[in-house]
């Protein structure tokens, strides 16, 4: 594959993205505008994540790509193939063997190390967008640290439903300063965001990059009397028996029968392996 540059993007584009990543790391949770490029896959398919990965990958990296926690979902396969083709990097499905992990909607169950980089695909980076549609307005709100609207929204949830009715893309506050969208991960994953790995977030269509250095303080917004709760289905995995991993519900027959299985396919198979070896 020689028709395109290493990792597809030209060097000038990579420099522009790299500068945005560095400022993102220097101002954790703040959304850095960047001149997102048109990628050979549609907006909404992870163009932001792909651009961040392309600017981050070195020829020595081992890449893992997951979508919904799984390595074998069609879009994860497609993105993995894209980088195999354009960057000629090693790929893996094993979380601990990967140096760069691109993800859509999940954080792996296995703890990440300080040698790893987690790249998120982000659809709407602005946590205040659904409360205030105007970009200049939300930018001002971040500048003034004016997050009252967000608390009002969460509080209205409580008065209407008796609980905070946000189950994914649950907003967080970073280092006590910026309110940040964690991307549409289930709120079950929110506590994992305080981790050893570097976390990079790319929103292609919305032209924003943001980042969290390792060990950055990430607090899910809540109220004293309605504390944040990282919830999941109250079942265990049908395949590996795990009680503490995030589960997908699968409908198995037409009489409404259903089972629960790990959303993280690598974690599930490694748990199954442990059980097999113990027997």
């Amino acid at each position: 594959m020689n028709e395109y540059n290493f990792a597809y993007l030209d060097e000038q584009t990579k420099r522009m993205i790299r500068r945005a990543i560095l400022k993102g790391l220097a101002i954790p949770g703040y959304q850095v505008p960047f001149a997102s490029r048109e990628m050979p896959m549609p907006y909404g398919w992870g163009t932001g994540g792909v651009q961040v990965s392309a600017a981050t990958l070195t020829p020595k990296d081992t890449l893992k790509v997951i979508d919904q926690g799984a390595d074998d979902t069609t879009n994860a396969i497609s993105i993995r193939k894209f980088f195999q083709k354009t960057a000629n990097v090693e790929v893996t499905e094993v979380t601990k063997d990967a140096t760069v992990i691109q993800t859509r909607h999940r954080i792996p169950e296995t703890d990440l190390s300080d040698e790893q980089i987690l790249v998120y695909q982000v659809p709407i980076p602005e946590p205040l967008r659904f409360l205030e549609p105007s970009e200049p307005e939300t930018r001002k709100m971040h500048a003034l640290e004016e997050y009252g609207l967000m608390h009002v929204k969460l509080y209205e949830d409580i008065s209407k439903h008796g609980a905070i009715a946000t189950s994914y893309a649950y907003p967080v506050k970073v280092e006590g300063r910026y309110v940040m969208d964690p991307s549409p991960i289930p709120k079950f994953d929110n506590p994992k965001m305080e981790m050893s790995a570097i976390q990079l977030f790319g929103a292609g269509r919305e032209q924003r990059i943001y980042a969290l250095p390792p060990y950055t303080k990430v607090v899910s917004l809540d109220f004293e009397d309605y504390p944040f709760e990282a919830s999941k289905a109250e079942h265990s995995c049908e395949l590996c028996g795990s009680h503490d991993s995030y589960l997908d519900e699968v409908i198995v027959d037409d009489t409404g029968g259903r089972i629960f299985v790990c959303s993280d396919t690598d974690y599930c198979s490694s748990q199954q392996q442990i059980i097999k070896e113990a027997v």
């Binding site: 060097e11 790299r18 570097i198």
Partner: peptide, 9 residues
């Protein structure tokens, strides 16, 4: 550039 950027990042 990729290796150098990794060091800077």
């Amino acid at each position: 550039g990729a290796f150098a950027f990794r060091a800077i990042m």
